[in-house]
Design a protein around this nucleic acid. Structure first.
Length: 629
DNA sequence: GAGTTTGAAACT
DNA sequence: CAGTTTCAAACTC
């Protein structure tokens, strides 16, 4: 049995001794080795804007457990001075943050064929067998992680880039080249990566090639995804680095002020919509996911990656303003034809349904946040989580029964995770401090898959000043995790009273209003919820005819956002409120990364197994080869 | 690898 | 809010 302490130590080293390590370590100890691994995975990925920044700042960051926030104590000392420009190599010896490359939420990730996720989900859905395989996989990963840690300690390499344990082992070369030194330094001009048509690395992780934006605009995939640029990026004059955390945060805030959902995931997954139709009849749409704002293609006919919908492997919807749409994943016309309400209609319905405009706004915010979270979760996360909770039976039952069987299961689970994440708002501050990034953003790494409940609870807000003082639950029993987890399995989306969208920190946005009461509710009827939800789900699905419950026109260009509507109430009230509103929203995670690196496999094999959903074939043909190049 | 096309993001 | 510009990815040659 792996020694939790040992792993923890590894994690700490790996994470550059981030102050949160102690807390995490405690949790890990409590949760056992598996949890440890999960933590490990999560923590690995928590070094993005938030943690990475803290790393860069080193001493300047401290944790505020009570508020679930990470406070930059001396922002003024930032970076510009600390961090020499790329190539100077004088950074504080921060270990490489987890390469931001990777699952970029906003950058839609075609990196991973949706079907891969779907495949995984199916596998998991297979209750008994699925769980077994999951267990074995996890065990193997544990070994890999341990080896990675040991290896790291020995040769001084950071573990940060161990996106996936398997990668760690398989991609020795990559690790070697991407040592901490390299990762900590912006790519020097002379070292600039050769530009290729493929912006994703072998793991499907994206990297940018920005030249003028300094990677501080949404043009930059990394920035848009809420991740720092990393060595693989070939950007020039990049300021999207931990060293420039202050600049990054400011820019981010500026952008958010302009568009609160700027950093929200672009793909949303309605739970109930025509997806079945699409899948069955057209075999072109992997899921019912839709681009939240829709595309605006004029000449590409939504058949090229210029189209964000196409790129995300989703069909166009009524929200799109494309012309001559021929999106193989679903044409806009088809979407409308299947009865989806138009964006305006959705807005109207929202207004009608809610008496409080503010409330809806919040919902929208939450939706964005939710989506954000979803992207980072790998399809198998839920099962792993379940295993940790000691409620495996119930959880697995729920998962397999309601969600996993379908290709969208991963999405659902992700959505569930969102709930979970949101629930975590109420959790212990220190626990909630970590890894929001992971949850929010790129979770391409296997480590994400291994998120434990506890790990999920460790949400790390970005260094967003606005966030401080958010959480009111300073102490959260592990029970909470379990409880929330149970909710997680149901894909219920809870509202975040916090309202405003926070970059990466959204899940942690304090939700004292909803939080406590609901939390209690859930606690009381935790076990019942499974049954209740299971029974309800079918009805809900039937009721919901409109996947995109609402559309928000919030940008100058009238881009749309789909907020979650019904589940905000939480499980406790879901039976009457959220779920039965007939509009259950499940935000679809963009097919980020194949949990177990199926993509990698696919790369080498071109195998359909890894990229295989029937619906996906067109896409596959298009993308897998490309990635190989 | 250079150049072109495209559409999102940013700006006016 | 519409039109224009900027930008970087996607694409072509």
């Amino acid at each position: 049995m792996p020694n939790p302490l040992q792993d923890v130590k590894g994690c700490e080293d790996y994470n550059e001794m981030v102050p949160t390590s102690h807390v995490t370590a405690e949790n890990i100890l409590q949760d056992g080795s598996e949890a440890t691994l999960k933590h490990h995975g999560i923590r690995r990925r928590c070094l993005q804007f938030g943690e990475a920044a803290s790393n860069a700042l080193g001493r300047n960051v401290k944790l505020n457990a009570a508020s679930n926030t990470m406070i930059t104590v001396k922002p003024s000392e930032l970076v510009t001075s600390l961090c020499p420009r790329r190539g100077s190599g004088n950074f504080p010896s921060t270990s490489p943050k987890p390469s931001g490359i990777g699952l970029h939420l906003n950058s839609i990730i075609n990196a991973i064929p949706i079907d891969q996720a779907a495949t995984t989900g199916v596998r998991l859905s297979d209750s008994s067998q699925g769980m077994k395989s999951t267990s074995s996989i996890r065990l193997q990963r544990m070994e890999n992680v341990k080896r990675s840690i040991l290896s790291s300690n020995v040769d001084g390499r950071s573990l940060v880039d161990t996106r996936t344990e398997s990668h760690e082992i398989d991609d020795t070369v990559a690790t070697d080249t991407g040592n901490s030194e390299d990762l900590n330094q912006p790519p020097s001009p002379c070292k600039k990566k050769k530009k290729t048509s493929v912006t994703a690395d072998d793991n499907g992780c994206k990297r940018c090639n920005c030249k003028k934006s300094k990677c501080l605009k949404l043009y930059c995939d990394c920035f848009a995804a809420g991740t720092y640029c990393t060595d693989p990026c070939a950007c020039q004059g990049c300021l999207n680095r931990p060293e420039y955390v202050e600049t990054v945060v400011e820019t981010k805030q500026q952008i958010e002020s302009r568009n609160p959902i700027a950093f929200a995931p672009k793909i949303v997954q309605p739970t109930t919509d025509i997806s079945s139709h699409m899948d069955d009849e057209n075999l072109t749409t992997p899921s019912s996911a839709r681009h939240k704002r829709g595309c605006n293609c004029k000449r590409s006919m939504c058949l090229k990656k210029y189209c964000e919908c196409y790129q995300a492997n989703v069909g166009c919807s009524s929200g799109c303003r494309c012309e001559g749409c021929k999106n193989v994943h679903g044409k806009k016309e088809d979407y409308v034809a299947f009865g989806h309400t138009s964006s305006k209609e959705r807005v109207s319905s929202i207004v009608e349904e809610g008496s409080d405009c503010t409330f809806h706004n919040k919902l929208e915010m939450v939706a964005s946040k939710t989506v954000y979270d979803l992207h980072c979760l790998s399809p198998i996360t839920p099962s792993l989580q379940c295993s940790d909770q000691g409620k495996e039976d119930a959880k697995s039952r729920v998962i397999s029964g309601n969600y996993l069987p379908s290709p969208e299961s991963d999405v659902n689970m992700l959505a569930s995770c969102t709930n979970y994440t949101k629930s975590s708002e109420n959790l212990h501050g220190s626990e909630a401090l970590l890894d929001t990034n992971e949850m929010l953003g790129n979770t391409p790494y296997d480590s994400q898959i291994e998120c434990s409940d506890a790990a999920l609870l460790q949400l790390t807000p970005l260094p967003n000043p606005e966030q401080s003082g958010t959480s009111s639950f300073s102490s959260v029993p592990n029970e909470c995790a379990k409880i929330t987890h149970s909710r997680l399995s149901h894909g219920c989306i809870r509202q975040l009273p916090g309202g405003s969208l926070r970059w990466r920190s959204s899940p942690l946005t304090p939700s004292t209003r909803v939080g406590e009461a609901q939390y209690l509710q859930c606690s009381e009827s935790d076990s019942k919820l499974f049954d209740i939800l299971e029974n309800e789900t079918p009805d809900i699905l039937k009721e919901a005819s409109t996947p995109m419950t609402s559309v928000k026109v919030n940008s100058p260009t009238q881009k749309r956002v789909s907020p979650p509507q019904s589940c905000h109430i939480g499980i406790g009230s879901s039976s009457s409120g959220g779920l039965r509103s007939g509009r259950k929203f499940i935000l679809k995670a963009v097919p980020t990364f194949p949990s177990l690196s199926p993509c990698i496999n696919s790369k080498s094999n071109g195998d359909e197994d890894s990229c295989n959903s029937p619906s996906k074939s067109p896409l596959k043909a298009n993308e897998c080869p490309q990635r190989e190049s």
